[in-house]
Design a protein around this nucleic acid. Structure first.
Lengths: 264, 264
DNA sequence: ACCTGAACACCGTTCAAGT
DNA sequence: ACCTGAACACCGTTCAAGT
């Protein structure tokens, strides 16, 4: 059981749905009554566990909207009362965190991303497309992935996974980027990637939940010994350069648009 | 009273907050009981109207979080029971729409934005900074501004205001952009702007509410006679180019990063 | 060990009733 | 004309009680 940084100020985050929540023909059954529906678990047997709960939640959100995910509905989906879920999940917050982790872990298995690339351009291309694939596969969940404070909340913008960030920095280092150049590249890349995809999924009707305020106090003081480059660049990565970043990207864009004038 | 496209499938969107909602020292009073607090209106007198309701709501959200905004709390803020609000607002959805409009209207008054610029670069610079100012002034509200379907829901990405879009297209046209070039410029510019700012405010703990699915059916079939360029380019603007847009921006970014290698 | 019923403090919204 | 009380159908979460 991982130590949860939760609480102190964990804020439940529920949307509630008057009486008008659309119930598009759900793939999981048409019984409108509260009939338990145990046919939905992984198939491996009756016992519930955290993983099964998280999987059911992800699937519920993929087929509906984020606000459709309710402790009561999730319980019903698993053939159990809502209160039972609290044995596998500390709160709705924790449920959402778990879902994000589950989906993120998929990326590690993605061979397209983890093929060793021999130049950094190819590496970044693969990474970008891998993340985009996740975004499009789970549009409702992606805003959470992109914005929930990750293991290292001081990194701006947050790429959500220490493993990613470490491998990003290491790859660029080996390709001849100086430390400041690598940090700067990290910033441009991740804010392009997350910003663009956030907008793209929001156009599909996604829904960003409130982000736990990155309260520096309860930053879990993560152990970075496994991530040496991250540790080395910790200070640089935690600076906020959003204004400067904004100006530079805008400038680049204007230059790019210049080439459009007077041409078809 | 403007015709509201609401309903048919309007979905209330409430977050509810167990018992743990933080109540940071609110600037509007410390009476914890349900004491009416009529001292909050514009100052011009007791009568409630839509505008006052919207203003109070915006201020509530600016000082707290989006999920803090509740019909009951808003009512209390205005010295009235929650149910009275329904005289000025059709639903919580409508309340949020009204708040977005109120804030957007501020931009029209912004002299920084509406100075006539004589080159399009300056115009886009002004516009970008004006929108960024709004985002930073109302981080909690901005995701709604950036993602709620605007008057013309077929425009991707949505710049939220027909007046903006028209003036954008007209300016570029007069500066020698061909029609396709102007549309392409619109796309790059708005997705840069909204994506970047969405990410920036989300890092501050913002919260994107569910977006009403841009249901093409109930698109209000807006009257575009006042917006000739918009009308002319309607078809081009409604194409989805997000994949291509993604590739191009990524490519540009990689080229830009190239210049960082091997330099300090 | 796992699940449940009943309860609590919240939601948006409706509606008949008050002034 | 404007406001309200009471009610309804929902929330997350707690807790003592069941098996």
């Amino acid at each position: 059981v991982t130590a949860r940084s939760s609480d102190g100020g964990a804020i439940p985050r529920v949307r509630q749905a008057g009486s008008a929540l659309p119930d598009p023909d759900t793939p999981e059954g048409l019984g409108s009554a509260a009939a338990p529906n145990p046919s939905v678990d992984g198939g491996t047997g009756g016992g519930l566990d955290r993983r099964k709960v998280l999987q059911a939640a992800v699937s519920l959100v993929d087929h509906h909207e984020l606000r459709y995910l309710t402790m009561r509905r999730l319980g019903q989906q698993l053939g159990v009362e809502a209160m039972s879920l609290y044995h596998y999940v500390y709160s709705r917050e924790d449920l959402l965190d778990g879902m994000v982790e589950l989906v993120i872990d998929d990326l590690y298995g993605d061979p397209e991303v983890h093929l060793t690339a021999d130049d950094w351009q190819e590496y970044l291309q693969r990474l970008a497309h891998g993340v985009r694939r996740i975004a499009l596969a789970h549009p409702q969940l992606f805003p959470l992935i992109a914005t929930r404070p990750p293991a290292a909340p001081w990194v701006r913008p947050p790429l959500r996974s220490l493993r990613w960030m470490e491998s990003f920095l290491e790859t660029l280092h080996q390709c001849g980027f100086s430390d400041p150049a690598a940090v700067s590249a990290y910033r441009s890349f991740s804010s392009f990637l997350l910003g663009q995809l956030l907008l793209e999924v929001s156009a599909q009707g996604a829904d960003i939940g409130p982000i736990e305020q990155a309260n520096p106090d309860d930053a879990p003081q993560t152990d970075l010994t496994e991530y040496p480059r991250l540790k080395k660049l910790e200070h640089e990565l935690s600076q906020d350069h959003s204004a400067q970043e904004f100006e530079e990207t805008l400038e680049t864009l204007l230059v790019r648009l210049e080439r459009l004038v007077g041409r078809p």
